[in-house]
């Protein structure tokens, strides 16, 4: 990897000062994505600001029943937190479905939010990639695109967002707290990631000098009945072809609360607002689940390699909602 300066500030103020006015600086958390990309030469920071010494590694209660998760809480720690497992099982399950135990022990919540795509053309310097080199073109469009996104894509990028955690956070209406020398601000999770449009290299609303300090989960009692279902090419340790984060509350056969988000199919973690709109207040059942899934996927923009994802996503949404509705098949 390209040589870089390394600093390890002890507090948040020091960390954000270290990147202020330094466009070549990057925050480093667990390193599971950034170190890999640096070794591949995709990321080439001049300065690496190691934030793992910052006191942002606690999970705290919020007034009203939510949780505030420090940005440096390791994914593994988060999966095991009893409050998360009881109140937001979808989040614990999403994290456990991702990567391996070793990687979860390293990866931080903040880093996971900023995880970059697995598009093979993004990784390969011999290929054209607008995300890696803006304006360079996109070899995935007419290439091997089985793993690519079908929702929210553009003519310049069809890369899928790879995170499992983010899909659960999108479903849970999480809020991202960020800090810079200009102060603190809060960004709703559903607005945190950007669609590629003409600028696929810009992936989030985060300014280059802003540090993610925490993720807040608002109180969501119905989320106690939530589930993450991940479909992939092997039984474990693989990125999602399709994943579904869902929470469902049904009373007297009618949907009284629902949250739905999709992974593996979106250019960003995909909150299925349209499907939720159709489901809410209507009957809970195979027919409505299918209709909702189809409506959400109606706008899919597919290529030969990834057209199957529309069918797979529909089937996975329906199956996940069915399980939540009937309580079956939690294994």
């Amino acid at each position: 990897m390209k040589p870089f300066a390394y600093v390890k500030p002890a507090d948040v103020a020091g960390a954000v000062r270290a990147v202020s006015g330094e466009p070549g600086a990057k925050f480093l958390g667990g390193g599971t994505n950034l170190v890999d990309l640096m070794r591949e030469g995709v990321e080439r920071p001049d300065t690496v600001v190691d934030v793992t010494g910052l006191p942002l590694d606690t999970i705290d209660e919020l007034p009203g029943g939510g949780l505030r998760i420090g940005a440096l809480v390791r994914n593994g720690t988060l999966t095991a937190d009893e409050r998360v497992r009881a109140r937001y099982p979808v989040l614990s399950q999403a994290l456990l479905a991702g990567a391996s135990a070793q990687l979860r022990n390293m990866a931080t919540v903040g880093g996971n939010l900023l995880q970059r795509t697995r598009c093979p053309y993004f990784y390969d310097h011999a290929a054209a990639c607008n995300k890696r080199e803006p304006g360079g073109g996109c070899d995935a469009l007419g290439g091997l695109n089985r793993s690519h996104a079908v929702l929210g894509v553009s003519g310049s990028c069809i890369a899928a967002h790879p995170s499992d955690m983010c899909v659960a956070l999108a479903a849970l209406d999480a809020v991202i707290e960020v800090e810079s020398v200009r102060g603190t601000r809060r960004i709703p999770m559903t607005g945190f990631h950007r669609l590629p449009g003409d600028t696929p290299e810009i992936e989030t609303e985060l300014a280059p000098d802003e540090l993610v300090t925490a993720v807040e989960l608002p109180s969501a009692p119905f989320a106690a009945r939530s589930r993450y279902r991940k479909v992939r090419d092997r039984a474990s340790y693989a990125f999602a072809l399709v994943s579904v984060a869902a929470a469902l509350e049904v009373r007297d056969g009618a949907v009284t609360a629902v949250r739905l988000a999709l992974g593996g199919v979106g250019a960003k973690p995909w909150r299925a607002h349209e499907a939720e709109r159709i489901l809410l207040g209507g009957p809970a059942g195979e027919e409505s689940f299918t209709r909702a899934a189809e409506a959400e996927l109606a706008g899919a923009d597919v290529r030969p390699g990834n057209a199957f994802k529309v069918h797979l996503a529909r089937a996975t949404v329906v199956a996940t909602l069915r399980e939540l509705n009937t309580g079956e098949g939690t294994a």
């Binding site: 480093l28 990687l103 022990n105 390293m106």
Partner: peptide, 25 residues
């Protein structure tokens, strides 16, 4: 690349992939 686990070591008893860890950290 963190894709095989052959480099697994324990850091304060916790398993990690040493290939994705910078020694300075």
């Amino acid at each position: 690349q963190g894709a095989c686990g052959a480099c697994t070591v324990l850091a304060d008893g916790v398993r990690i992939n040493a290939c994705l860890a910078l020694a300075v950290q």
